[in-house]
Nucleic acid binder design. Structure first.
Lengths: 358, 358
DNA sequence: TTGAAAGCGCTAACAA
DNA sequence: TTGTTAGCGCTTTCAA
């Protein structure tokens, strides 16, 4: 807590105490001094002074003047999810390495929130925006467009800006196929023994469901509509769907495809209410990877979306001059049960891990 | 992608087209017009105009002039972790509900990064800062102090600013006790059958380890130093510790306390390398809660830290005038195995979950 | 009830 | 090689 502080030094302060004009000081301190042909000695003097006085630029002033802020935004649906939080992790590292300032926000999959938040980011004059998993990418696009804000869609594509998304059809295909093959190890599989839960009417869910149907039809024959329940992205609703199924059939489906790790949390809620026996023989697929889920006490195939590649690609598009409006697909990976993958935290150094006893 | 756009409207534009002075327009548009006794009619006129022209304030300009930005920061160690990402989730919601703009950043538990990032936030004139899990809270404090930035420590306490932290001793006590009781269900427990992995030389780890020792001594007698291995906060290092133990003893400890979910990920890496039999009879405690981990195929007791309460308390301290420099403890909860708790995502509406088939 | 004017800290012509 | 100056868009006295 604080208050007592003397105000921060400005270029004028440094100008006065050095007897050098503000514009020269400015040039030195913002790095443009070489091309302004300022004497090395002058520069050094000013830098020394700045150092001594703990000078740091007022970025609001700089931003106001130059109408750019150095801020790069990432708009997420939610933080509290390994897929999106790993995106945030990669995003931060990559943006910071370019000397810009990353700012991560979440809009809770609410189109109004999305719009408002983007408006507010624009009010702060952010320079670029990565829009991840937006419910209304094209609406957000219009807002960005109007403000002249460069933006790219990630995870969920829009039709009006470049997009980088997981190849959801391919992922859905891999997952469904792995599920069926695994189920067959325990005997023949009837079409109504394989279900799908979770997701809603967005591009990703549609593609995954399309793949699910195609593979299922090819491998098992028909696919009753009752086998597909997009319960939205909420653990609670998904849990209800499992409960309802269980109430009706006295058991869970032998095999099922869960649309995301958020929906998979719904399965955990179901499990908490039932003894182990209730799911002794199930085979599950989840379109998302989570390191703990992978070791759950039933075969769980997961799809790992390549968050790092998506962020990298998204940022590279942002730095392109006139990127074509197209959708880039990023290949996902099928992760077999009991697999512990490396994540963004592994890139971190952990210098002073204590090996002695405390 | 965009470029073509006409510039955003300013109060001057509105002033010109309305024939009303900029200062009046300003007052109307920033909400101070009632106390400036501006006529209702004037206000309405300007608001209508602003609406029509899609006016929104330039927050950099406002911030520059008023030397506050409306930005509130949350500094995290990492994003990619359920404990911290749920903090971020609660933080966003609460800050936004006050009309301010939340900005979440991570510093990777690197003191230099922490300092730099805070400096850069200060350059953007953020108004308040919540410092979560900082490696060097007091160093960060000094920087904030110098800039007159209000700040509070969360999760890891500092000695120079108010702090809100989990009652780590109590959590450690609950967890160790639950572990021992559960182990005893399978027969008598010797002191060297209960171990601790993970954490490093920070306040949280020290408290947890202290509790571990106290409870262990009280319930089991001695506690050989070799039973405690603070491996830092890295999945990789922790996995190595498990491997080393396994190599030496031909098995994992019968029971062990894992210092955080990040360390627990190290256990997953170990598990991936070994058959189920290698851990058929283990009992584990983890000082963090994760909904998937709770259902792993061995008894796993977890400690849930109350991220929501900590954020709430932290923000309330920030809005206090001269908060005393003290540490507030937040009670954690022991979560028995196979428990699916509600999280921040449950507060979200999921309006258009699709119940029909696509 | 409203307007004029100064200035927040910085950048970028243009002059010197 | 450096200095002068005019703003960026907004808030805020002070005066009318």
């Amino acid at each position: 807590m604080t208050d007592k502080t003397k105000k921060k030094a400005t270029i004028y302060d440094l100008s006065v105490i050095s007897g050098i004009s503000p514009s020269t000081v400015s040039a030195v301190l913002n790095g443009t001094w070489r091309k302004r042909r300022i004497k090395e000695a002058t520069a050094e003097l000013i830098q020394k002074l700045a150092e001594e006085h703990g000078y740091s630029a007022n970025l609001q002033a700089r931003g106001l003047r130059s109408s750019r802020s150095g801020l790069v935004g990432l708009l997420l649906p939610v933080h509290d999810n390994r897929y999106f939080s790993s995106m945030a992790q990669y995003f931060e590292a990559q943006v910071r390495s370019t000397g810009q300032c990353p700012i991560v926000v979440s809009a809770c999959r609410d189109p109004d929130e999305e719009h408002q938040i983007v408006e507010s980011l624009i009010s702060y004059s952010i320079d670029e925006l990565l829009i991840a998993g937006a419910t209304d990418p094209d609406g957000v696009h219009d807002i960005c467009e109007r403000a002249g804000l460069k933006h790219v869609n990630i995870d969920l594509p829009g039709s009006k800006a470049p997009s980088v998304v997981t190849d959801n059809y391919e992922g859905g295909r891999l997952l469904t196929q792995a599920l069926i093959e695994r189920m067959r190890e325990q005997g023949p599989v009837a079409p109504d023994e394989l279900h799908l839960f979770g997701g809603r009417d967005d591009h990703a869910s549609r593609e995954r469901i399309r793949a699910f149907r195609d593979v299922k039809r090819a491998m098992l024959g028909g696919d009753p509509d009752s086998c597909i329940q997009p319960t939205g992205y909420s653990p609670g609703n998904t849990a209800h769907a499992f409960e309802a199924f269980h109430a009706r059939h006295g058991r869970l489906p032998r095999g099922f495809f869960v649309n995301s790790s958020i929906n998979l949390e719904g399965l955990m809620r179901f499990l908490a209410q039932h003894p182990q026996e209730a799911f002794a023989d199930i085979v599950v697929g989840c379109f998302d990877y989570d390191p703990f889920a992978s070791f759950l006490p039933f075969p769980l195939f997961m799809i790992r979306q390549d968050a790092e590649a998506m962020i990298t690609k998204g940022l590279s598009i942002l730095s392109t001059t006139r990127p074509p409006i197209m959708t880039h697909l990023v290949a996902p990976t099928l992760v077999p049960p009991r697999t512990a993958l490396i994540g963004p935290l592994d890139a971190l150094k952990d210098p002073d891990a204590v090996h002695s006893v405390l």
